[in-house]
Design a protein around this nucleic acid. Structure first.
Lengths: 335, 335
DNA sequence: TTTTTTTGCGAAAACGTTTGCGAGCCGATG
DNA sequence: CATCGGCTCGCAAACGTTTTCGCAAAAAAA
């Protein structure tokens, strides 16, 4: 019922408000008999303590916030799935904020969390020159855990993947199967993930002595821009014979551009990329992907955040957790 | 800063707490001069009013809750995208709850919202015999708006699509292009969307006088079960020559089962289905889909919810809003 | 001038919980 | 018998806002 509060219960039971409160929270200083009486009535009315009053009094919200660039992205939606699972187990609530790759929005949103709205923050950052809002969280003693897109300068636990390794392995295999000119497609790029993946790409080239053949294509977040970029590259004089996409969207864009330009994958162009598309194997041709354990990342990050919130010591490996991705080699890279 | 509250500001400015509060909220009874003084200091400290105190006092949380069966589903993640956009514009926060198609969880989660944690609820329900928790919301005067999966018995605004029409059109076109035995794949079924889509399917069959050839396959939510079901149907004596999937997952399952059974789409089996996969055109073969305007549904539903929250009158069409889907006819249904 | 209105601000009560402390009561212990 | 300690429970103070009311002083009207 809407209008039930402790006062009403207390009146009806001839008890003090404090007694009712304690009874409901199973305090040891309340007799079993009254506990039963209280709980019975509370049940009857379907009483739920007002969360704002509780949060105000206890200075904790039983709520965590998740900030991600976007949600129409399998990686993030899977991660959120993991996060929500853990949160629900813990009896916590989950606030979601989307920044749409806009660092100003990210700043504003994070500011809103400072004053107790959330007990902790899980964030996959968007690109920016600096992150004062995250520093502010540290000062406000709001626990943060990064996942996937981290910022190195800020001292907070992070859950990431061995992306550099997998970028390296993927590119090496491309080279070994005969690709000569691999283009690396990346989002505008000072992001941790872009850097790491690019490092892996370059390492593979270097190892094969083909560093001078590197082609790095920076695509902006704008929808059409990346396709225009791609078209230019693919119709240029020295067309690459493979592309390695740092993010899912760019792999998909490549397929679309190839269709438009009537290029055949993999004959004319091998395509591989980081992606959590569960349907990559249904593509024409099936798309070679590096898939990250998004769900596990979410669970892991949430788990660490809760340990922080509960003031527990972090386990040795938890300050920087690296989860293994894996490579699904499919026909889009068959030479 | 963490420890800034009205009291601190008031002390430092030689003002009363109430004056500071009013100044920050641009009350007309505060002079421009003091407003400026107050705001300057508040800015300096980066003061944010404690949301729990505000919510407690004002009996509103500036938060809405979104309850969906799952998030690893393009329809829902796109819808959430739209919802979040509107909410952020309005300065509202968004709580997310996943029910994983579990009606008990849905009930529990919705109970938690009763006591002011959220000012409104956007829900796409999971199947259940009854929905007492939603009735309770109405009694608690918590505004609800349904989207996509609605429950007819409950009197609340709903945003849906013309799914029956599109199911009908799709099946008709399948029949007209020569399919004889169309199987309708659906999730366990008393859900509004299942019923409506099935109605469209049956209507098409009836119109062509083939109602007796209907094949309705109820697949459970369990992952493997639906594939087993499919295999049985497709290896039976009277194999269907087309399937129409009521939900995305079943269309994908069909592709996988066909691959396993070495059935060719569309030669051996036409496939179509409701789906918001943006990459359906990249499938092998490109998948014919009925795509719903998920993003717009989210925006629309959120808009209506806010009108409810703000106590405004609903516009005539808003009690039941039907948005148009559209059919993307592709090679998976080419005969 | 006096009266009324307006302007700007302060004191204090609320919102619904949780919690420190103290009070009464009981049985047990000295 | 006096004291003590353990059980239950009530009183009241918090938590940080918002808001009602009231009160002066200044401005306007008389």
């Amino acid at each position: 019922m809407a209008g039930t509060d402790l006062k009403k219960l207390a009146r009806e039971l001839n008890l003090a408000v404090s007694t009712v409160s304690r009874a409901l929270r199973d305090s040891h200083e309340i007799s079993a008999a009254t506990k039963a009486r209280v709980k019975a009535l509370a049940d009857k009315y379907g009483f739920r303590p007002n969360p704002h009053a509780s949060s105000l009094r206890q200075a904790k919200s039983r709520t965590i916030a998740v900030v991600v660039p976007e949600i129409r992205n399998n990686f993030f939606s899977q991660a959120i799935n993991g996060i929500e699972l853990v949160a629900q187990e813990k009896g916590y609530h989950v606030l979601i904020y989307l920044t749409h790759e806009n660092s100003k929005q990210e700043r504003e949103v994070v500011q809103l969390l400072q004053n107790g709205r959330a007990d902790g923050l899980l964030i996959s950052v968007t690109e920016a020159e600096s992150y004062p809002h995250l520093e502010a969280c540290r000062e406000a003693e709001l626990p943060i855990v990064f996942f996937d897109r981290v910022v190195d300068e800020i001292d907070a636990p992070r859950v990431i993947t061995d992306e550099k390794l997998l970028a390296y392995q993927t590119c090496r295999r491309l080279l070994e199967s005969g690709c000569e000119r691999i283009a690396f497609l990346t989002m505008a790029g000072n992001l941790s993930i872009s850097r790491h993946r690019q490092d892996g790409y370059l390492q593979a080239l270097k190892e094969k002595g083909k560093e001078h053949l590197s082609i790095i294509v920076e695509c902006s977040a704008a929808d059409d821009h990346s396709r225009e970029q791609l078209k230019k590259i693919l119709s240029g004089p020295q067309r690459p014979d493979a592309v390695f996409a740092a993010v899912e969207k760019l792999a998909v864009d490549t397929y679309e551009v190839c269709a438009e330009m009537e290029l055949n994958i993999p004959e004319d162009l091998c395509v591989a990329g980081f992606s959590n598309l569960t349907v990559a194997s249904l593509f024409n041709p099936p798309l070679t992907t590096v898939v990250q354990p998004a769900y596990e990342i979410g669970k892991e990050a949430a788990g660490i955040l809760f340990r922080l919130i509960e003031g527990k010591k972090l386990l040795p490996g938890e300050q920087k957790r690296v989860l293994p991705s894996h490579l699904e080699w499919r026909r889009s890279t068959a030479r």
